[in-house]
């Protein structure tokens, strides 16, 4: 059985839940089982937000990930501190290095760490931090390979329907930037 579990975590408004949704959509369109399970509660912009996404070839058990995550995506420092310990041995830790820095020895020895300056990259390319989440998603897909890269395009057409289709080119570009960055800095 092949199962891929990942936690996307950040401040509310950074797009953790949306990047998880795009990944879940892409995997679903490949015919895989998926679950997208958000933290919910009295949360607001600036508060914490995270989502657990599981992609599997067969039925998914717990949609809540409490151990052995194949990947943790930390968009800020509190998220990094909260989830660093549940990355599986051999798993990946993808960090927005503009907002979070791994302390010496904080990650387990077998964990692959990817530091992505996503905010800086987004500011240079798009003039703001809005698409930093898609840059991070590109890095995640390179680092962990849970889906075919092409499937992201299918996901975009489902997530950005109708009038939102105009957002696809920039989202696609941001995704590709992150993917290439991870490839060149692995």
């Amino acid at each position: 059985m092949s199962t891929f579990s990942t936690i996307f975590a950040g401040f509310g408004g950074q797009g953790a839940l949306s990047m998880g949704k795009i990944l879940a959509y892409a995997a679903m369109l490949e015919g895989k089982e998926v679950s997208w399970c958000p933290s919910y509660g009295p949360e607001m912009r600036g508060g914490t937000a995270n989502v657990n996404v599981i992609v599997s070839d067969e039925g998914i058990g717990s949609p809540v990930i409490t151990k052995d995550a194949d990947c943790v995506v930390a968009l800020n420092k509190p998220s990094l501190d909260k989830f660093v310990d549940i990355v599986a041995d051999g798993g990946a830790l993808v960090i927005n290095s503009d907002l979070a820095e791994l302390a010496d020895g904080q990650a387990k020895a077998g964990v692959k760490v990817y530091n992505v300056p996503a905010n800086k990259m987004a500011a240079e390319a798009f003039g703001g931090s809005k698409l930093a989440n898609l840059i991070m998603l590109g890095a995640v897909v390179y680092a962990t390979n849970p889906i075919k890269v092409e499937s992201i395009d299918d996901a975009f057409t489902h997530v950005f329907e109708g009038g939102k289709a105009k957002f696809i080119p920039d989202n696609k570009k941001a995704f590709e930037m992150g993917y290439e960055f991870a490839k060149n800095n692995a």
Binding site: V34, S35, P63
Partner: peptide, 10 residues
């Protein structure tokens, strides 16, 4: 329960 209500699945 709330988790099934809030969660997305295909």
């Amino acid at each position: 329960d709330g988790l099934i209500g809030q969660m997305m699945e295909p």
